[in-house]
Design a protein around this nucleic acid. Structure first.
Lengths: 187, 187
DNA sequence: TCATTTTTTTGACTTTTGTCAAACAACGCT
DNA sequence: AGCGTTGTTTGACAAAAGTCAAAAAAATGA
């Protein structure tokens, strides 16, 4: 099911709703290793990722990159707090691969919500999905050992494993890179 | 600043808005060691905690209680996913002490949002605050050692430490109770 | 109050995970 | 293709955290 069908089915979109929507999104590309969002700046854009992959991260006190999320095809790329409240972002979002996306700005999104009220609900649903996935992640960090976290990760995200540097997966899972290397050998 | 003042200041409440609000909340008590919300049931209530303390938890595969959150005086007691979507709760919420609270049901909240639209925004703000605090928690679990997590916890929540069983703090921090006991001795 | 249950601490031990440094492999750029 | 950079593995070791069982302490309810 493509995106339009989903909107029609789930949110009762009319042709006009769809038109108002697509006219406010525009296709953009994000080359690999370039920042989609930079720490300290206000997130003005939200993207629907059509292809490629991104990750969000921040720097800890020893200047290590701590990865907090991977965005893959079909997901919404957003720094929730920064975009929703229009405050400076605490995290960076960077393209891991060349990305194709459909982008909407904050201002256009506000317009769109006025024109097509269902978008308020969609925004809420996206936020909620992110909350739920963060909750799952948090519980995993709280209850699983390093190797359990890794095994669950490769089971749920075999595609990410192929395409992302192990050190980013290690930091995402809260495991030292050398330890992760040994866990991988032992499986 | 009390609750009413906050609503007036932040959300421009009128006297009428306030009246519509208070008439839908009602005071309730929750005795210590009784469930405010039981796993598997739909959360029909949201509470503003005036006094006492609660915690949310679930059971892991070995039937250990895993505490996910502490609610203290002044906070909103809610199982976000269950209340917002009216789906069965995955977690339990239990009173740790006798609690006094102001309670509103889901249906009354929907009414209230219709009567006083600012409540939609308040709901969003509460959700967002919970998202942010979950994000902080998740980052701590990802990046800090057991003793760092504990030291941060007692710095931020000295009040909880006094009033809650250590085993619940241990499970909240993802630390074995015996290990936590040793960490405490070493500080 | 007192007995019972629950919680916390402790000891001895094992397992898991991290640290540091070096070697090795892969990648990106010209 | 080749160089330099970045990422990964490995070894030797150290530190952190978990396990099991028993003792001690504290809380609960009759």
């Amino acid at each position: 099911m493509d995106f339009k069908d989903k909107l029609v089915q789930h949110y009762g979109f009319t042709e006009r709703d769809w038109y108002e929507t697509v006219s406010r999104y525009r296709p953009e590309t994000q080359p690999a290793r370039t920042l989609f969002l930079e720490k300290g700046k206000v997130a003005t854009r939200l993207a629907y990722l059509r292809s490629g992959m991104m990750r969000s991260f921040f720097y800890d006190d020893k200047a290590n990159e701590i990865t907090t999320h991977f965005f893959k095809k079909g997901s919404v790329v957003i720094s929730m707090k920064s975009f929703n409240d229009q405050v400076p972002s605490r995290e960076n979002i960077i393209a891991i691969e060349d990305c194709e996306m459909d982008v909407i700005t904050y201002d256009r999104m506000q317009e769109l919500i006025r024109e097509v009220p269902a978008w308020r609900q969609i925004g809420k649903d996206v936020d909620e999905a992110m909350y739920n996935s963060l909750m799952n992640r948090s519980i995993q960090l709280q209850t699983l050992t390093a190797s359990e976290r890794y095994e669950l990760f490769i089971k749920k995200h075999p595609d990410i494993l192929q395409r992302v540097a192990l050190k980013h997966i290690a930091s995402y899972l809260g495991i030292d890179i050398a330890t992760l290397s040994r866990i991988r050998k032992s499986i």
